[in-house]
Design a protein around this nucleic acid. Structure first.
Lengths: 84, 84
DNA sequence: AAAAGTGTGGGTTTTTAACACCACAATTAA
DNA sequence: TTAATTGTGGTGTTAAAAACCCACACTTTT
């Protein structure tokens, strides 16, 4: 039932970044979706850390938010917590 | 024959970053592979921009190179060139 | 009140990367 | 010379992202 994919802390932190930039710009899921060619329902899942997106999607999100990919990763994250 | 995935400028630029950090630390593919749980042959492909890796792999690479994910994206890239 | 927009979740199909290998030529070290 | 290491390709399997759709309760706008 439901998700076979686990949420990782990194995915969740990344998702929060997307949400932060999206809300700063007063964009809805559907509006951002239109700008970056990602389905609005998937953007919801990305923000909640439910999917492990690819590099191409990172780029699309950066484009849709008009920021550099680097800024999307501008958050604190402890690499020591990475399991494998 | 060969690759179904096209190299994008972004993948290539990202790959160059990996190569830069890896060579700065005098690591071979196999040495980096050991540190980040990614097969050495795949690291070769990532550096050449041949694969569209996932967020989890970005994190593994950052961990293997002992740098923040943000630094991996610290390169110039013109979002205006993004097609879709 | 009606219409439009919102976040959210479900489901299906197609695409594709991760993964775990193997093989080999060239280089470097013993 | 032999052995080890390196970068580089190829392959088949499997899990999951991406793309697409829809539906619904709730809020905002008209």
């Amino acid at each position: 039932m439901g998700n076979s994919v686990e949420k990782t802390d990194f995915q969740i932190a990344f998702g929060r970044q997307i949400e932060k930039f999206r809300t700063e710009q007063n964009l809805s899921y559907r509006q951002l979706a239109q700008r970056c060619d990602i389905d609005h329902s998937n953007i919801s899942k990305i923000e909640k850390g439910e999917i492990n997106i690819q590099l191409s999607s990172v780029l699309q999100l950066a484009k849709g938010l008009s920021i550099s990919p680097k800024e999307l990763f501008d958050f604190n994250f402890d690499l020591g917590d990475v399991i494998s």
